[in-house]
């Protein structure tokens, strides 16, 4: 209470108080910064240190063992499949959201965001129930006479993709939508009047304009999907292990802390590389649009 932040008196008393008032923001952010340093950054440093126990043996083991290389490949394959599916579905959904108004728009927004706040575990559990051999989808197809025997819809890559796309879709839709909202509809009209066909209009005018949104959406979905754990563990089969499952298994089953740490560092590195590549392409895309 003694320190009056009244700008006038502070000015009279000299620069120190003024500087303190300006440095206030650091004081406010300090507790959270300290908290993150101790409970977030320090554990990550601990992982990095442990992964290097005994030199680079752990990393040699990851990249020298066919089994682990295959896990890394599966992880990237799933991330790619999920990103492409999210892009196709998400682009169409974002367009619907940007083109509609009123209740329909509210409805579409709710349908996208309400599941977003329901836990990943529960939604994955629901997919397991729906996709299993005795689940709704197989029973429905059987009842309709479309198939003779139940399809294997879970414990494989298809199941993982269904679950992951379901969870990651909002991360694709929202960045694309924010870009679509800023596009002047007159541009499309101008292209149409100038005689461009619908398809040409879309591919030469609309799509390039939404490219920054597409790239942001893809980077989010791709980096998040690399680290997915619950969905592949529940909906995937034994041969579709992803790197996050391996990390967890090495701790809970093998109790091999240093190898698990090395896998964690590898995952972080891959995530960083993907992020950097996309950031680079985003810069290029913006430059081309601007020029």
């Amino acid at each position: 209470m003694t320190i009056a932040a009244n700008p006038e008196t502070a000015g009279e008393r000299g620069g120190l108080l003024r500087r303190m008032a300006r440095a206030n923001w650091l004081l406010l952010a300090l507790p959270a910064l300290a908290f993150f340093s101790i409970f977030f950054v320090y554990p990550l440093i601990d992982i990095a240190m442990r992964s290097l126990q005994g030199g680079v043996v752990n990393y040699e083991r990851i990249f020298g063992t066919t089994l682990y290389v295959r896990v890394v490949m599966t992880t990237f394959e799933m991330a790619l499949i999920v990103t492409v599916c999210c892009l196709v579905i998400g682009y169409a959904y974002a367009y619907a959201l940007s083109a509609t108004g009123g209740y329909l728009q509210v409805f579409l927004t709710l349908a996208l965001l309400l599941p977003f706040w329901v836990s990943v575990l529960l939604r994955t559990f629901a997919w397991l129930v729906l996709l299993q051999n005795t689940g709704l989808i197989n029973q429905g197809l059987l009842a309709l006479g479309l198939i003779d025997a139940p399809f294997q819809l879970v414990r494989n890559k298809f199941g993982i993709a269904v679950g992951m796309v379901n969870i990651l879709l909002p991360y694709m839709v929202l960045p694309i939508l924010s870009v679509m909202k800023g596009i002047d509809p007159k541009l499309m009209l101008a292209a149409r009047i100038s005689g461009a066909s619908y398809l040409r209009c879309f591919f030469r005018v609309y799509l390039p304009l939404t490219l920054p949104g597409i790239i942001s959406g893809c980077v989010l979905v791709m980096t998040l999907s690399l680290g997915f754990y619950i969905v592949p563990a529940v909906l995937g089969g034994g041969r579709d292990t992803m790197i996050a499952q391996l990390i967890a298994d090495q701790i809970t089953r093998q109790v091999n802390f240093s190898f698990s740490s090395a896998l964690a560092v590898t995952l972080m590195l891959f995530t960083g590389i993907v992020f950097a590549l996309f950031a680079l392409s985003l810069r290029l895309a913006k430059k081309r649009l601007g020029g």
């Binding site: 680290g227 967890a248 802390f257 964690a264």
Partner: peptide
């Protein structure tokens, strides 16, 4: 954006 498994084993 940190993979939650990584955070989990670190913590």
């Amino acid at each position: 954006v940190t993979p939650v498994v990584v955070l989990a084993i670190g913590v």
